[in-house]
């Protein structure tokens, strides 16, 4: 009798796990099935490297959006990585444990704020500031980079914190016993020992940034052209899909799926790098 229920539970769990896996697989298959024939028809060159995006005229060049996504993501990294790493180092090495126990969950809570709220703050506060002090339309690469940089902070910080936490105390003691100051021990040994985990955190953060949609639509301005300066407004790959999917049909719709493939590949590459970084042991040069 008992054996029976156990087999049933086991089979049911297997079914659930399989269906989760299957739905992911189906999504991937679906995107590729819609997007790949399009790419073949238009030609990868005309799709990836042309700057003309005029679906009504049969022009499907997403180059400006690729560049925009890259700019915005790198910008987010420039904002989020130093802050996140510095925060993680500071919390781990220079703040009493008790404070850390309060602050770390608080930062992780930031990850739970809906992205539309970040976008809202970007539109209401950041964009006007940029417009007033730096010029341009305000809704821009810069605004998107700053907002995304803050959004990826929890990711970068919590992974970097875990990596730094995992550095054995014996390294710190060894460094201090050789006459190092606290700060020397941290930046010459601890951070290097935690390097792979820190890099993984940054890259996973970049993956989040490149995939973020709602906040970016709200603050980036959505103009389809390659940015000439950080103050220009841009449209990212994600924004392009989200903005046009509602009314697209035929080739246009397929073009958006193909855009999804490009995004998919970007994120796959970033995540693989992050995974490889986490797997490499620290040490040597």
């Amino acid at each position: 009798m008992r054996l029976n229920t156990e087999t049933i539970v086991e089979k049911a769990l297997l079914l659930v796990a399989l269906s989760a896996l299957m739905s992911l697989l189906l999504i991937a298959v679906f995107i590729f099935k819609e997007g790949v024939p399009f790419m073949v028809k238009v030609g990868p060159g005309a799709f990836l490297f042309s700057s003309e995006w005029e679906p009504q005229n049969g022009l499907y060049g997403i180059f400006p959006m690729i560049i925009a996504s890259i700019w915005v993501t790198l910008g987010a990294m420039l904002v989020g990585a130093p802050l996140g790493i510095a925060g993680a180092v500071f919390l781990n090495e220079f703040v009493p444990r008790g404070v850390m126990r309060v602050v770390k969950p608080a930062i992780e809570l930031l990850a739970g704020i809906p992205s539309v709220v970040y976008g809202f703050i970007g539109v209401m506060v950041l964009a006007p500031l940029i417009r007033a002090h730096l010029g341009g339309p305000g809704l821009s690469v810069l605004a998107a980079a700053v907002i995304l940089g803050v959004m990826i902070l929890p990711t970068v910080m919590s992974i970097a914190t875990d990596a730094i936490n995992a550095v054995p105390n014996s390294y710190r003691e060894g460094a201090l016993a050789l006459g190092a100051t606290r700060w020397q021990a941290v930046h010459m040994v601890v951070v290097k020992a935690a390097r792979s985990g820190i890099i993984a955190g940054v890259i996973l953060g970049m993956g989040r940034a490149i995939g973020e949609t709602m906040a970016v639509i709200m603050v980036a301005g959505n103009a389809v052209r390659a940015p000439g300066s950080p103050l220009d407004s841009v449209r990212t790959l994600t924004a392009n899909i989200a903005l046009e999917m509602g009314y697209a049909s035929g080739m246009h719709r397929q073009a958006l799926f193909a855009t999804g493939i490009v995004l998919f590949l970007f994120i796959m590459v970033l995540n693989s790098i992050a995974m490889a970084a986490m797997r490499t042991r620290a040490g040597g040069r």
Binding site: P168, S170, E173, G174, L178, A180, T181, K192, G283
Partner: peptide, 28 residues
């Protein structure tokens, strides 16, 4: 601490190259 060197129970070389380990105290 630089005048009173310490060797620990478990070997604790830094996760750096041999070279960087040896010169650590000097660089510091």
């Amino acid at each position: 601490r630089a005048r009173t060197g310490m060797v620990f129970q478990r070997p604790n070389p830094f996760p750096l190259s041999v070279y960087d380990n040896v010169v650590f105290g000097l660089r510091v």
